[in-house]
């Protein structure tokens, strides 16, 4: 069985945006692209993320959360089916302060896959990768896919419901 990347993108989008008020929506993290070994995400500037009230610069913690999330889902792109890959450890190097008012982008890639561990790294920037705000390297745990059977079933059932809902709404308009 091979991973369906369109379905994975919908899954990532659901995790990031479906639960209003959780940490993902609080930070405003959104998916940009999902492909094998690579995931891109963005985080819009928000006053609620400011770490230094004198400058308006967002706190490193928010960037850590963005890079952790982005690396984690990049790790999930190497699996054969939808599953989560918990973070084992993560290191962030801060290279320059984020610019107030600007969206932060993250690009993550997997550089090594083993039986139990997936190795990933990522860069946070404002659109120019030559001017990184921070870089991250993290290791992620490859768990048994069977542990996520219920999660997959629930996600697919919800997707089916959503699709049939869209179809019936579509036919009402015809």
């Amino acid at each position: 069985m091979a991973l369906d990347f369109e379905e994975l993108l919908r899954f990532v989008d659901t995790v990031l945006t479906a639960n209003e008020g959780d940490h993902f929506t609080t930070l405003g993290i959104r998916p940009e692209y999902v492909e094998r070994h690579r995931v891109g995400m963005s985080m819009s500037y928000s006053d609620t993320l400011i770490g230094d009230p004198d400058t308006g610069v967002i706190h490193g913690g928010a960037i850590t959360a963005l890079l952790d999330t982005c690396c984690g889902f990049a790790a999930a792109t190497v699996l054969v089916d939808l599953a989560m890959t918990p973070t084992i450890d993560l290191r962030i190097d801060y290279m320059r302060a984020a610019t107030p008012g600007q969206t932060v982008y993250a690009d993550a890639e997997v550089y090594r896959v083993t039986e139990s561990v997936i190795f990933a790294r990522a860069l946070a920037h404002h659109g120019d990768r030559e001017k990184p705000i921070a870089s991250a390297v993290g290791n992620f745990f490859r768990m048994e896919l069977a542990l996520f059977t219920d999660m997959r079933r629930e996600f697919r059932a919800a997707q089916k419901l959503k699709q049939s809902g869209q179809k019936s709404r579509g036919s009402d308009n015809e």
Partner: peptide
């Protein structure tokens, strides 16, 4: 705090919220 949840089914805190808390 609800806004620190990363996995609503368990529920569990977001790793990023834990890291942010430790960094702060």
């Amino acid at each position: 705090k609800k806004s620190n949840i990363g996995n609503p089914t368990l529920p569990a805190l977001h790793g990023g919220a834990i890291a942010g808390f430790m960094e702060l």
